[in-house]
Design a protein around this nucleic acid. Structure first.
Lengths: 192, 192
DNA sequence: GTCTATAAGAGGATAGAC
DNA sequence: GTCTATCCTCTTATAGAC
């Protein structure tokens, strides 16, 4: 019961973070969205930063599940796997479930960087993606002149790319078209 | 004299916006950075949002100058021009002079969307880039299956791409390497 | 136009009863 | 663990003297 209440809180936080970002999200909104008093939030989580960290952990866990499933698909090449996990991230963003954190907020960053649960998951995910990246580079499917670090950062950034929300707001394309287009521009570039 | 004072204010705002973003920048910091009292700021500019709009206008004016210079270079193709203006944007970001605004803040967005000076410049820039985009697509230099809107949004987004600051923080690459790499991933993709 | 001082309000976090 | 009520700090913006 406590667990499901906390799940509900984190689910609300996740959605609000995706919708408005960390700074614009207020603890009053979270409490109202969950349907409890603000003070009760603090019985479950120590701070707004901790709440954001829990939401990120939830997303990282889902990403790790996705990568594990893709790893088991033996008919897939490493480039296919990278595209598939990118597709999952774009679809998650499209569904309004990809929390967006500020790139440089100091208070939040220091909380995240000292949060072992978060760091552990982030490193496990980075390691797995790193293996796919070097694998795809060795097979020639990915540009081998790009440092693996650049590829990794690019994929993480594309998972939160504001281009998706601009296209969504424009309303001229279906969700599937948006995802396909962004996969194409990310991997094949604008020159195609 | 009034003009140069206001120039100094906007220059500080521009730098602070690039460094910390709109929400993290405070009017106290701006006043301290310029070296005047906070109340004096409000004799020049009505609000924090107006200040951000002025900083954006300054950047858009510089972008328009860059595009005009590139338009006059007759030996360049449209794709070369698009790459050159993207390069300028990345170098501006590297120099800590590209203001970063939140993608979805409502108060700021409504100020910007009702600011004629801002809107006018944004549309003039978009129009010019739009001509280059369709030109490059017609000559086959740019993927003609991509809607011009997608290309335009992608270029705007890459001008503020967080990947640049991640690579800069990492410290493993020179500024020139970072810019070349991001131009490459943007136009040629990760597959190369 | 610049300053000091302060209003006004938002938002994170807590006290203390139940 | 939940609530109401409140604290406290930060930040935007303004008042009013010079």
């Amino acid at each position: 019961m406590l667990r499901s209440r906390e799940d509900a809180i984190v689910a609300s936080v996740n959605r609000l973070l995706a919708e408005k970002g960390f700074e614009a999200m207020t603890m009053d909104e979270v409490a109202a969205d969950v349907g409890i008093a603000k003070a009760s939030l603090y019985k479950h989580f120590a701070s707004k930063e901790q709440l954001a960290a829990e939401a990120m952990i939830r997303v990282l866990d889902r990403a790790l599940e996705v990568t594990e499933t893709l790893q088991r698909e033996e008919r897939l090449g490493d480039l296919d796997r990278l595209k598939a996990v990118t597709r999952w991230a774009l679809e998650t963003q499209l569904a309004g479930e990809m929390p967006s954190l500020p790139a440089q907020d100091s208070a939040l960053r220091s909380t995240l960087m000292s949060h072992n649960g978060y760091l552990d998951r982030l490193m496990r995910l980075s390691d797995r993606l790193g293996l796919w990246i070097t694998g795809a580079q060795e097979s020639g499917a990915l540009n081998a002149r790009l440092p693996a670090e650049v590829v990794l950062y690019t994929l993480f950034a594309r998972a939160c790319d504001p281009v998706l929300s601009l296209l969504k707001i424009g309303g001229n394309y279906s969700d599937a078209q948006i995802v396909d287009t962004l996969i194409s521009t990310c991997f094949d570039g604008l020159t195609g």
